[in-house]
Design a protein around this nucleic acid. Structure first.
Lengths: 125, 125
DNA sequence: GGGGCTACTTACACAAAGGAAAGCGGTTAC
DNA sequence: GTAACCGCTTTCCTTTGTGTAAGTAGCCCC
């Protein structure tokens, strides 16, 4: 129930700092659109209206905000070309590829979890 | 800007299903307390009031809700011992250990990201 | 000069997440 | 009997995230 007060827990400090990092990571990729946007732009660079068209359901307000957010975190870069009218292209940076293994883990775990939950619902009924 | 319509994107379908799984995983571990609770109970099984004491800041309403959630997802088990008064112990299940590598990835990425952002703020100023 | 396009911004609204405080049913301690 | 503890639940409120609709600045076309 409780380890004694004096015996430090196995790796409590390491654990809380690792928790802090994990929560930071979550806060960066969290939200309905962020991962989708990153993946979308990793497939190819696109303009605002093209992204809006591909991500059916996102409003321009949210898209603008999310793009700003992603740019701040260095996942994407905003290029302005002085054509008339001006062309603005959003491009995934190399840094967005640093998410690859994280997304891989998330996806692998998420996939097996869905299976597990489906299984346990079947067994329950 | 846009790949031609007929040439299918590198792995678009795989990508959207992987996105779906990743979002599922996020929805399960998402929230201010879930990961902390899992890690807390992985260190040792505990009673409601002990958890509440260890996680300073969580309200009983939220704690009860989160514990229910985690139990539904099979991360923890609720044991009732018929002592007087009844003792209730929450214990991390083996399944919660399946999160280990995911938490590891999150934490590793989060740690390096914080460094990177700090760096880029320094360079900017 | 009216309408349309692009890349947004602004104002408003709503729903979900989370927190504060009180209560509750059962028990033990005094 | 009354006070306290445990494991919650209930009520109310604030904050955060997201959505809808409209507007705007700059340019083009006719």
């Amino acid at each position: 129930m409780r380890t004694t007060i004096n015996e430090p827990l196995p790796d409590k400090e390491e654990c809380t700092s690792s928790l802090k990092n994990a929560l930071d990571a979550l806060s960066v990729i969290n939200g309905r659109w962020k991962l989708a946007l990153i993946l979308c732009l990793m497939q190819s660079s696109k303009r605002f209206s093209e992204i809006q068209h591909e991500m059916t359901g996102i409003s321009s307000r949210i898209l603008a905000k999310e793009l700003k957010d992603l740019e701040l975190n260095d996942f994407i870069k905003r290029h302005v070309y002085p054509t008339t009218p001006v062309t603005i292209i959003y491009e995934a940076t190399g840094y967005s590829r640093s998410l690859k293994s994280l997304i891989g883990e998330l996806s692998a775990w998420g996939g097996q979890h869905r299976e597990k939950i489906k299984e346990s619902i079947r067994n329950q009924s």
